[in-house]
Design a protein around this nucleic acid. Structure first.
Lengths: 258, 258
DNA sequence: TGAATAGTGTCTATAAGACAATATCCC
DNA sequence: GGGATATTGTCTTATAGACACTATTCA
């Protein structure tokens, strides 16, 4: 925390000196916070954002619902910790997974000082409903966003009957930041595709955007802007099992060809 | 990290049980990473982004230039740690200060495992040039961005003669993320005002935007969009000491009146 | 008066919203 | 055929870029 006195040395001796310093360095000389990762697995179902929550079987906050999380190993990168937690607690692998924000208020965990690096993952509805955790049990909870646009703030988790689910720690705030980030990103980054299967109708993509943004979009201009972006390509396949004219299926293409 | 077996208890006893659990919790039971904050103090001068760097007097990376940083106290929030580091290492207070990203690769610090939560601050050129640190010495380094748009990647720090300055740790990557974030934010958040004194000419604001974005902007549409945003208000004051027609000075207003 | 930039007005190209018309599927 | 949605086309409006023109200050 402080920068005590220092002495200059000729640069030729610097490497040996640095090696000696590192050998003598004692990482346990002062108390450290704990570092955790929490992963918000987001999906869209029935026109609303949903997330995967796990029931806390241990103290603290036993019985409340929490984001899948865990402590970061000393020899494990943050990204690796997030992927490991995702796989263990939800059984899901190889998802879009991105760091969100780091929450470090002093009292956010009653055990001790825990700083958590929050991540969010995106997955399509069919895959998240097939997911089976390697341990524990999961709830697929609907997110209720009590604010508009990118105002921000905590959100609520609801069960299938619309009852509010109690969230642990500051996870309502974390999920609020996830929603805010998703709304901000949808405008200029094609993350909507991560929430859909490989082939999708443009109407499905629009429904995803509307669920994330929390407002209706204009159908015509949505179609035009998506097609004009060059990020989707028609597949000549059609929807099936729909009680109306089937739409052509599109796929996401990385290379905009123009 | 694991969720072992659990027994159900009547909810009436839950509070007492949780208190007992917390009293017995041992935070030092497994090794912890260290947590630091680094603050990138960004400003615009001579048409380019600049940042404040401190010379490392201690190992590791002695002699290299680093972002002002320090370890997070066990009873100190991340935001408070960033503000403290900013004040101690640069003498600057009450700046726009926002969390950026958390860097946690295993080998990023040769001492031990150090996870750093990076922040960025914005300050106008006159104020940063008056800044005097409470300890150590500072360099006001020009940032050279070797990529366009929001491609991302490390940047270089240059001294007044254009010579490259050696950066410590992964700080070239951190500064790259800062630049990427600033470019992304300029489009829809008025952070440009944080880089200017309270009263400014629209041309100055445009120069700020051009320096951050790394490209020229159209003068006419820049003026129109800024004025139409309702986020600036004319002050009826004029520039002075300019060898041409002085422009009217504007100020940033939070409430867009319309 | 000339150089330099401030500030205004106009035209055009592009993107978005609104709306209408036709096409295609299932029942 | 009727219901529902897909898909295409047209019209209108808002915005950004380009450009021309006038205004104001200093040297």
């Amino acid at each position: 925390m402080s920068d005590p006195t220092k002495k200059s040395k000729p640069s030729s001796a610097a490497n040996a000196e640095e090696r000696a310093f590192l050998a003598a360095y004692d990482a346990a000389a002062f108390p450290h916070p704990s570092v955790a990762v929490d992963v918000a697995v987001m999906s869209v179902a029935d026109g609303a954002l949903h997330t995967l929550l796990v029931q806390r079987g241990d103290h603290p906050q036993k019985g409340r619902l929490a984001l899948p999380g865990g402590f970061v190993g000393v020899k494990e990168s943050l990204d690796a910790a997030a992927a490991r937690v995702l796989a263990i607690k939800t059984g899901l692998r190889d998802l879009f997974l991105e760091q969100l924000y780091t929450f470090g208020d002093v009292g956010r965990d009653p055990r001790t000082r825990v700083i958590t690096v929050a991540y969010y993952a995106l997955v399509d509805r069919a895959r998240v409903l097939r997911a089976r955790p390697e341990q524990g049990a999961m709830v697929f909870a609907r997110i209720d966003v009590p604010w508009k646009g990118e105002a921000g703030g905590p959100v609520r988790a609801l069960d299938a009957e619309g009852r509010e689910l109690p969230l642990a720690f500051d996870h309502a705030d974390i999920l609020g930041v996830v929603v805010k980030r998703l709304r901000g990103k949808l405008g200029y980054v094609p993350i909507g595709y991560e929430l859909l299967p490989r082939r999708f109708a443009l109407r499905q993509l629009q429904e995803i955007h509307e669920a994330v943004l929390g407002r209706k979009l204009n159908k015509d201009s949505f179609r035009r802007s998506v097609v004009a972006s060059g990020l989707v390509a028609p597949t000549r396949e059609l929807e099936h099992d729909v009680p109306y004219r089937p739409a052509e299926l599109y796929r996401y293409v990385r290379s905009k060809s123009r």
